[in-house]
Design a protein around this nucleic acid. Structure first.
Length: 410
DNA sequence: CCTCCACTGGAATGTGAGGCGT
DNA sequence: ACGCCTCACATTCCAGTGGAGG
């Protein structure tokens, strides 16, 4: 995520000095955090969240907040933004610290505490050194408490993607620290989750200690997406975007997921497509291409990320689809083909039961489609499995895997 | 309307890897 | 270094399923 445009550039005719399409592509990067006035359609969420954290600004305890919402609905963005404003708005004599933890990265209690301590610690003030690793969990906690007391009246901690944290005692210990008298500094936690049921799945001890308000983020609608994209339109050169480009991208994204990240992705792709074509304007057809491209990318990612056994199962399906007029096959038929593949590739052969579950998982991910059919007295209930994307494309993607490469027709 | 087929899917149970405290 | 615990993945067993066809 670091961009370092070299400062001592030499004009080389091999590379164009100015870009025909983009003027500031950074604005379309995934990790780009827009300025405050560029956050769209989340005013309500921002003010609600700010209200919960209000205490921190005056040196009292902020409330804990649990934020729910799908990906790309601005949860992290709004949280970070509010934290920043809280820091700026802190009253005289009130020291506020804020920290952001990505639980996908630090997914154990120890890791999270250690990076929390490291992030909040200002060595020149506290004279404490936080080692990256090597201490027991409890030592890290002690370090953290010390750090906090030495520097802050209150801290706000953002725990992003907390559902990926495989241990919820962190939540409990953080929220109990203050009342247990371990620290004088007050702690507010913003926990962010994609899953609505997150709190239901945590145990009772955590539920009782992590008292919190809940906040729901709705997906962006087409209007908001359009505005978000228009706000970033100056990533493009003046007049390069045709009028219908942004509304179309917004419409695509809105009907599919309401995910701002993906919407912007499509816009960027459209720009790239236009550039490669040598077009002087980004047009509707470029957006359509970008959209299709995004679809394929998503698919590639799904298939690439699948475990080996799932790939073998998919390969069996593609093999059948390619070599026959039908496109849907009974599980038993697919399983036979799968057995052949496994044997040929010298892989373990899983049981039919497990095989069914693997296909079901792929169906959940949107790679295959399963239909229930009934053959009556000729054989009761069966499942029919069908690939959603073009079998050839799936096949190529699977064969990119080194373990699968030996499988070349027959 | 009852039977019957061959697969489905829930439940119990086993196994190996990895994180954690001691 | 050690055992403990949890989790994901896998197997085995078996009651359940539901419409075509008698």
């Amino acid at each position: 995520m670091t961009s370092d445009p070299s400062s001592n550039a030499v004009d080389d005719p091999l590379f164009e000095s100015g870009h025909r399409i983009f003027s500031n592509k950074d604005l379309l990067k995934i990790g780009h955090v827009p300025e405050a006035d560029r956050i769209v359609g989340r005013d309500e969420e921002i003010s609600k969240l700010a209200k919960r954290l209000n205490g921190a600004v005056h040196g009292y305890s902020p409330e804990n907040v649990m934020i729910y919402g799908k990906t790309g609905t601005g949860k992290s963005l709004v949280s970070m933004h509010v934290c920043q404003r809280a820091r700026n708005a802190a009253q005289d004599g009130v020291a506020i610290g804020t920290a952001y933890i990505d639980c996908a990265e630090d997914n154990t209690e120890t890791q999270a505490i250690s990076s929390l301590a490291a992030k909040l610690n200002d060595e020149s003030v506290t004279d404490i050194t936080v080692p990256h690793t090597g201490l027991s969990t409890s030592k890290y906690y002690k370090l953290l408490w010390k750090t906090l007391d030495a520097q802050f009246d209150s801290v706000i901690i953002i725990l992003d993607e907390i559902d990926l944290m495989n241990d919820d005692s962190l939540l409990m210990k953080l929220s109990r620290a203050e009342e247990a008298g371990k620290i004088d500094c007050s702690i507010g936690i913003i926990a962010i989750s994609n899953k609505i049921q997150y709190v239901d799945n945590t145990n009772e001890r955590v539920k009782s200690s992590f008292q919190h308000k809940e906040l729901f983020f709705k997906p962006y609608d087409a209007n908001q997406l359009r505005e978000i994209m228009l706000n970033r339109a100056d990533a493009f050169q003046d007049g390069v975007l045709s009028d219908d480009v942004v509304p179309l991208s917004a419409a695509f994204a809105a009907q599919e997921h309401g995910d701002a990240r993906k919407a912007i992705d499509i816009l960027r792709h459209a720009g790239e497509v236009a550039y490669e074509e040598g077009a002087e304007k980004v047009r509707e057809e470029h957006v359509r291409q970008a959209q299709q491209h995004a679809e394929k990318d998503r698919f590639r990612e799904l298939v690439n990320g699948a475990p080996t056994q799932a790939k073998a199962a998919l390969l069996a399906l593609t093999e059948l689809s390619v070599n026959s007029d039908d496109d849907a096959f009974l599980t038993s038929r697919v399983y036979d083909q799968y057995e052949q593949i496994c044997e040929y590739l010298d892989m373990d052969i899983l049981s039919v039961r497990r095989f069914r579950d693997i296909l079901k998982e792929q169906a959940f991910l949107g790679v295959v489609e399963i239909e229930k059919i009934n053959k009556g007295s000729a054989g009761g209930i069966h499942l029919q499995n069908r690939l959603i994307e073009d079998p050839q494309v799936v096949r190529e993607t699977i064969l990119e895997d080194s373990r699968m490469q030996n499988w070349n027709s027959e």
